[in-house]
Each structure stands twice: as C-alpha cells, then as structure tokens.
Amino acid sequence: MSNSGLQPTIDLEVYRYRPEQQAEPTYDTFTVPLRDEWVILDALNYIKDELDGSLSYRWSCRMGVCGSCGMMANGEPVLTCAAFLKSYAPGSIRVEPLANFPVARDLIISMDDFMEKMNRIQPWIITDEEKPLEEGEYLQTPDQVDEYKQFSMCINCLLCYSACPIYGMEPSFIGPAAIALAQRYNLDSRDHGQETRMDILSTDDGIWQCTFVGECSEVCPENVDPAGAIQRYKVTSTNDWWKSKLLPWTSKQ
C-alpha cells in the first residue's frame, strides 16, 4: 500500500467470505489511489492486481452493459463500473455483495433463485402456431415496438432484487426483473403467452406480493422501471379477475 504523499487515497472496506476458511464473513480494509476517472470496479481490480489476489468478484464489460458487477456500496446497490470513487470521498466505501442473496464467496452471490424465477415466466415469444418461413417475417410498427422496448432493456444485474424490501422478507416473491421481463413478452404483439404467464404472475407470490415501494425502479441502471411494469400488470390482472367473476363464460377456465 505504498502511496506517495501527493497521491490522494481512499479506503475500501471489502466484505470477505471464503467458506473453506471462515464460518463468518469479515471485512478487509484496502487503501487504493483516489483517481478522478476510477470507479469502484477499478479499485477492486487494483486490489486484486496489487494488494490481494485472492479477492473474488464478478465483472466483465466495465461499461454498464453486462450487468455482472452489481454490489452494495455503502448499503446501496450499484453497478460498480458506474460508481465513481470520488463521489464517495472523503470517507471510506464499504463494498459488500448484493443484499438479499446468499453469498458464494467474497463479493459473489448465488443467482440460482433468480435464474429459476426468470425461467418460470417463460421469457420467450410464445405463439399458437409457428408461421412457415416462406410467409416471411413478423412485422411490427414502431408503436408496437415501443410498447415493450423499455422492458427489454434489462441486463439482469439484480440491483432491483437487492433494493426490494419485499424480496428481502419474502424470498418466494417472483421479483421485479422477472415481472418486467414477463411484461416485455406480454406486451409484444407477436406473443400469445399472456394467459400462460398469468398463472405465474397473478398469484400471491407473483405481482401481489408487491406493495409498490418503488426502490427497484430507483436503482435500475437501465431505466426499465420494474415498479411501473408491476403496477401495469396489477391493472391487467384485476381486469381479468373481475371479468372471470362477473362474466365467467368469457374466460377460458
């Protein structure tokens, strides 16, 4: 940790958990150069290269596209590639794995729960029958694309699950990103899977766990607005419920 007197530095308190060595997590403090252009991910890379090669964390693109470097910085879920060190100075930065998930090692969480939920909402275009190739492509107007485009911007970074107090209390909640992704397909004019997905979404563990705290949309780096997707789906689900009670002969089941 040699620093010339001129180079300003900042301390990172980094969550450490190596299951083969320790039963309980600890924190290691590292002093890193405080450079204007450095983000937390740069600091972690500096630690791994120069100070402690055993530090484990996920990252790939370092430009807000891959969604793998999400962590807690001073208790807030952030993409560490987009969180500049200087915005935390003076003072130290506490870097922890994303909240509400089991920790596999150091800053790496286990994503299994989310992967299962994402699959459960069937995030692909469901058609009644596949159109033969010779009939050409499925056309959409710009308005039809705009319907779902916002919800298609999700990079699966899981910041929304970390920010969601409901998911923290009720791990069975299907969660913000999975519901926004379901809406990405529900609102696609080529998709006919709304009825199938409603069995997953219109349940107590689906949208009805949500109390519209709205933190998911606050932390989303891609402005997907999962809270908006959920609210919108609550209207869809409510219309369907009243229709099935008042006009039972119109619903399929």
């Binding site: 069995d199 997953i200 349940t203 609550k234 419920w241 009243w242």
Partner: peptide, 16 residues
Amino acid sequence: MVKRSNEPFWWALFGA
C-alpha cells in the same frame, strides 16, 4: 392449475 390470487378484489377497492 395454479391458484390465482383473489387480491385483485381488495386491490380494486384500494385503487378506487
């Protein structure tokens, strides 16, 4: 068949 929630009834009253 999965059981759909009856929450929409209360949520509709809540929204209204």
